[in-house]
Design a protein around this nucleic acid. Structure first.
Lengths: 223, 223
DNA sequence: TGTCAGAATATTTTCGATATTTTCTGAATT
DNA sequence: AATTCAGAAAATATCGAAAATATTCTGACA
């Protein structure tokens, strides 16, 4: 193996991707025998990858009962959204206060890349390409990256992984014709204009949008 | 092995305790051969325990270069303190708003236990007993436990582990005769009186105290 | 004196066989 | 019909040796 990436990291990334894109369904059991075939990895490697995913909040484990994909729920989505608003607005406020030219350039660059990346697989509006998801993450990371408080940024990044899980869930409900690009553009412009309060409001709305969609979607489905 | 605790968990807890109480110094290498003797554990078990500690922020790892105890720094202490104030006050505000009789009773009980627990080992003011550290954690957990947002509580708990690392560092500087018990009592009374703003202020001051001590201590040492 | 290649050493990573625990199945008992 | 229990089956947890990779040491060359 010539790559610098260790076997465990490779398996970790592949498992992580399969959880995030729904290939492994929330709540389903992650059994070693089965995973071993799929990923051609030894038990030790799988075990370590799963431990990392558990710590990240994408899987759960109970002693002697193995691992499962984490469950999703409306309650957790609500909690998650509230925490993300709290953390990300705090980080954005710092970034707007301390960001310099590098920060501005990174945001513009990330925005450009995101808007020029093919968003849907074969035009199917219920899907998102890996490339776009990646570019989206980079854009949001760039927005906060100038915040001096690295702990804040690390927590925001960690929560973004969980949020990805729900984004997938919300896609079928995006009947409202949400204009995500416009939200991102507004966010970028307010940040670059150093309008702290307005930018934070826009970010809060942006983060809350997914929750609103799912809540409304499941409510109408229940009737 | 008859215990319900799995081998990995046992080793994880022992390693964690040794990092927190300074038995393993910040920045020092955690080598397998050495750890294997100390903890009488296999490589796989150690590897998993270390992976969990890394995810928790108490250790670091680089591919092919093993694990180390996490480094401490003034910058990180500052970041950590700011995030903790942000998170814990948000959680406390929720707890004060939603807490019921169970919550009140738990706080009173935890406070009582903490104040009746021997604090120092052999009266040495530079040390803290494991029992007191445990009771202290339980008290702070009880304060926030009524917050409906479980994500918020989980993050607060996670950060408390890192904070423990710095508490140890600050002990030699506690020359100011800090009255921790009084701080805790004030905190408890304000929370039970449902005085949200005042309680959050008291909590912010309480969390920031450790930072002030270390900053002042290292400044005067540098002169 | 400083630099560099290559051997020697030390450390980490990976693997599958074995031990332990949980879950399943079905017959016996109340 | 419901419960209990033992044995079988399936899954997870544990271990230490072997492979892969980094680090250190050595001595020749500039």
């Amino acid at each position: 193996m010539t790559a610098s990436e260790t076997q465990t990291e490779l398996t970790y990334h592949r498992l992580r991707a399969d959880i995030l894109n729904g290939n492994l369904q929330p709540g389903s059991a992650l059994q070693f025998a089965q995973l071993r075939e799929t990923y051609a990895a030894s038990m030790g490697v799988l075990r370590e990858a799963l431990t990392r995913l558990t710590a990240e909040g994408l899987a759960t484990s109970r002693a002697q009962q193995g691992f499962r994909v984490v469950e999703v729920s409306l309650k957790d989505l609500n909690d998650l959204t509230n925490v993300r608003v709290l953390i990300e607005t705090a980080a954005l406020r710092e970034a707007v206060a301390y960001g310099e030219l590098d920060w501005e350039s990174d945001i513009v660059s990330a925005y450009h890349r995101m808007t020029r990346t093919e968003k849907h697989i074969n035009g199917d509006e219920n899907t998102v390409t890996d490339d776009w998801a990646q570019a989206h993450q980079v854009f949001h990371f760039a927005l906060l990256s100038a915040a001096p408080n690295t702990r804040l940024i690390a927590i925001a990044d960690g929560l973004r992984a969980s949020a990805e899980l729900y984004r997938r869930w919300s896609m079928p409900y995006e009947t409202v014709k949400r204009d995500v690009d416009a939200e991102h553009q507004e966010l970028m412009e307010l940040a670059l204009a150093r309008q702290s309060n307005e930018a934070c409001d826009a970010l809060a709305r942006h983060l809350s949008f997914t929750r609103e969609l799912i809540v409304k979607g499941t409510e109408s489905a229940r009737q």
